[in-house]
Write a protein that binds this DNA or RNA. Structure first.
Lengths: 134, 134
DNA sequence: GTGGATGCAAACTCTTTGCACCTTG
DNA sequence: CAAGGTGCAAAGAGTTTGCATCCAC
């Protein structure tokens, strides 16, 4: 269905190589190292396609533009692994957290049906806290 | 410092009357009942001013445009009460939750400093779950 | 009367879309 | 060669800002 183009490889490659969630502009910068005339529209189009194929996941954080990360499982027979994110306030990078405290049903009032929850942590990543604390 | 204008009263009134987080457009619709020629720019300007006075709080949810809610305490000598939100996927309304599971330090990897966390619940509010379940 | 507040239009960011041209299979 | 992919420019949502006018004090 999808053709293998240099643009597509560049977008997917950038995400897989980064190992963290990237914004479309970050992807553009990285991928332009491979495909100089690459355009943001093309990036958005591949981001949609790659989501449909479950190769990548959209990461939405409160008050932040959308980011995208490579899907965790190499083999995507399993549903995407449920996880949360950490946003570093110093370097503005976003890291996946591989823990989850479990259901949050009890936070909601009676009568409310909770079908999903999202947790976002903010603070300083290891790299930035090393710089500022010491 | 700030003048008491009909526009300001209309914006604050809409938020206090609603008792839940509203988007600027929702505020516009409600407040235009009071001030017909009210403009979105004016609303945004008052939203900024009212945040500075701690009369209202900005509510950011993943993938959602900003909403605003009246500050909980009538007397704002205390810092804003820490709380989370529930987003109804059916009616798109946002409700404040008055519970919090506490620190999330342990979700972050070693070396990461967590200074804040946000939790968003999604699902059906009491009103909408009543309609769909029964 | 004067300075802050308002409405309108324009600008800005992020994202999507129309269209002519190019490329992959 | 045909179907789909690409770049560019333009269009949309949400938000901010410049400016002339207006109104609260």
């Amino acid at each position: 269905m999808e053709r293998n183009t240099r643009q597509r490889d560049a977008v997917l490659g950038a995400l897989e190589h980064a190992g963290r969630a990237l914004t479309p502009s970050e992807i553009l910068e990285l991928a332009q190292g491979t495909v100089a005339r690459l355009n943001l529209s093309t990036i958005y189009r591949h981001l949609h396609a790659l989501q449909d194929e479950a190769r990548i996941v959209k990461v939405l954080l409160p008050g932040q533009a959308a980011r995208f990360e490579a899907a965790c499982g190499e083999h995507h027979r399993h549903a995407a692994h449920h996880h949360h994110h950490f946003h570093c306030e110093a370097c503005d990078r976003v890291y996946a957290l591989h823990a989850c405290p479990g259901s949050m049903q009890d936070l909601a009032p009676a009568g409310f049906v909770v079908s999903a929850h999202e947790i976002t942590l903010r603070g300083l990543c290891a790299e930035c806290s090393r710089g500022s604390a010491r």
